[in-house]
Amino acid sequence: MDIRPLSPADLPALLELTLSVFGPFYEDSFRSVVGDTVFLNRHGDWKEDYRRHLAGIHAPDNGKFAAVARIDGQVAGFVGWIIEETERHGEIDILAVAEASRRLGTGRALAAHALAHLKTAGVEVVSIGTGGDDFHAPARSLYDSLGFTPFPNISYTKAI
């Protein structure tokens, strides 16, 4: 596995990967739980939201960094992280692994890569968030195994 900094040429493949990874959550899980009104209001344009997000994911002048993992020349996953220097705090902003590269240590390697960069930058505390639903269970398992401490957070949404 090769992990290197994101380049602009990576963005089309990363967007395709992101839509593939998170599409089942938005379309099959979230939408069915909250209903169409809430879904359309909160995440109805989730594909475009990710397109915008990924366009600014690697902006070192703004404390944003990203790396891409490749296995046999194919994009296996990517990670984005944010450094808040004055607070000595960092955040793993996004972590996505292609289906074919799951259960191979790709997510762990990407997280370790980001954590090493965060530590080198002087970060003392790192945060990462994920969902409490079944879709996000593998992510929770990974973050638990990396020593992150979960804290329950419940978000309520209602159509009125």
Rank of each mutant, 00 (worst) to 15 (best):
V125K: 11
D133N: 13
S145A: 15
N153E: 05
Y143S: 03
R140G: 02
Y143N: 02
F135C: 02
E124I: 08
T130P: 03
I128N: 00
A139V: 05
S145T: 10
S141T: 11
D133M: 12
F148R: 02
P152R: 07
S127E: 15
G147K: 11
E124M: 11
K119C: 09
I128S: 03
N153H: 11
S145F: 12
N153V: 10
F135L: 06
H136L: 00
G132D: 06
V125D: 08
G132L: 08
A121Y: 01
T149R: 15
P138A: 10
F148N: 02
D144I: 05
T149G: 05
E124L: 11
V123M: 03
K119Y: 12
V126N: 01
F151Q: 11
S127N: 13
S145E: 12
I128D: 03
T149M: 14
D134H: 13
S127M: 13
R140T: 06
T130F: 00
E124Y: 10
A137F: 05
F151N: 06
D133C: 10
A139R: 01
G132E: 07
A121R: 01
G132F: 10
G132M: 12
E124H: 14
A139F: 05
F151A: 14
G129A: 08
V123S: 01
T120W: 09
A139Q: 03
F151K: 09
D133E: 15
P152D: 15
P152I: 08
L146F: 07
N153Y: 06
D134R: 15
G131H: 01
T130Q: 04
G131N: 04
G147A: 12
S141E: 14
E124Q: 15
G132C: 07
E124W: 10
G122T: 10
G131Y: 04
F148K: 00
T120E: 15
E124F: 10
P138T: 07
D134Q: 14
N153A: 07
S127L: 12
T130E: 01
A139P: 03
S141C: 14
S127V: 10
E124K: 13
G132Y: 10
G131K: 01
V125G: 02
L146R: 00
G147Y: 09
Y143E: 00
V123I: 10
H136F: 13
L142W: 02
P152K: 07
P150T: 10
L142P: 00
